Simulated scan of single mutants.
Amino acid sequence: MKHLLFIVIMLLGSVTFGQKMPKLSVLISNCVVKGTKGEAYENTKKNFAHFFALALSFDATGKIDTLYYSSKLNPETKKIYALDSSLLKRIKTYNLSFKEYASRLVLFSYYCYNSTDDSVDYKNGFLNSIKNLVPDAVSGKPLIILEPIIDANLPTEIN
């Protein structure tokens, strides 16, 4: 009986520690895609790109507590990617702690386009998206800027 209990505990430990901690960018990308409305990728206009930024505030333990995005965000982009309070709820369901970002702000830019396009039409508001990239709420605060997430296809699910 002792050996059986020991084996069960070892198996539970290997399952718990066997799961890889996803990179923050993978987590964010997955959560954005989960909130995507309809067939956003297929319905994205020819040579149109969605470009937005998300700023995440972490508490002292490294958990995400606040999500910021620009108030001047393109309404179509905001609607397609559900950039609202539901995104923060999706992120928090994973209950992950990123200790390297504890008590910090992290900014992600997110660039999404149709994979069949070969250029971007700048008349569609892309340059305005860049101009309005940083959310007003985080301006002037120390900020960690991570590599952009570039998404032409749906990313794979995280554990």
Score class of each variant (00 low, 15 high):
A53T: 07
P75Y: 05
S109N: 05
P135F: 01
I130T: 09
K72N: 15
I64T: 05
I64H: 05
N114C: 08
R90A: 03
Y113I: 11
F52N: 00
A49L: 09
L73Y: 06
N74Q: 04
N95K: 10
K123D: 15
S97D: 02
Y110G: 09
S119R: 14
K72A: 13
R104Y: 00
A53V: 07
R90M: 05
Y94T: 04
L96G: 04
N128G: 11
S97W: 00
I80Y: 02
L73E: 05
K72W: 10
L88E: 00
K79G: 03
F52R: 01
F48I: 10
T66V: 15
L133R: 06
D59K: 09
F48K: 10
K123Y: 12
K89H: 12
A82I: 01
S71P: 12
L67H: 11
Y69F: 13
K63N: 14
K92E: 04
T66I: 14
T116I: 15
F98G: 02
D59M: 07
A102G: 05
N128C: 08
R104E: 14
F48M: 11
H50R: 09
I130Y: 07
Y111H: 06
L107D: 03
L88K: 04
Y111D: 05
L127R: 13
F52T: 01
S86W: 01
L54Y: 02
Y68F: 06
S57I: 06
N132G: 03
N128R: 14
N74S: 01
P135A: 01
F108E: 02
A55T: 04
T61V: 14
E76K: 12
S109K: 06
K89M: 14
T61R: 13
L133Y: 00
N124A: 15
T116Y: 10
T77K: 03
Y68S: 06
L105Q: 09
L56N: 03
Y68C: 03
L127K: 15
N128S: 12
R104Q: 15
F51V: 13
F126S: 05
H50W: 08
A102P: 04
S97I: 04
A55E: 04
D117K: 05
Y94H: 07
Y69M: 13
K99W: 00
K99R: 13
F58D: 02
L133M: 11
L87F: 02
R90K: 10
S71F: 11
E100M: 14
S109M: 09
K131D: 08
L133D: 00
L127Y: 11
F48H: 09
F51L: 14
S85K: 09
R104L: 11
V106L: 08
R104H: 12
V134S: 00
L73W: 05
N114P: 01
K92G: 07
L83E: 04
D65K: 15
A82G: 11
P135R: 02
S103V: 09
F51D: 06
S129I: 02
P135I: 01
I80C: 06
Y113C: 09
K78V: 01
Y110L: 14
S86P: 09
P75L: 04
S115E: 12
E100G: 08
R90T: 06
V120F: 07
Y122D: 15
L96A: 08
L105R: 11
V120M: 08
D117Q: 07
I130A: 14
V106H: 03
L105M: 10
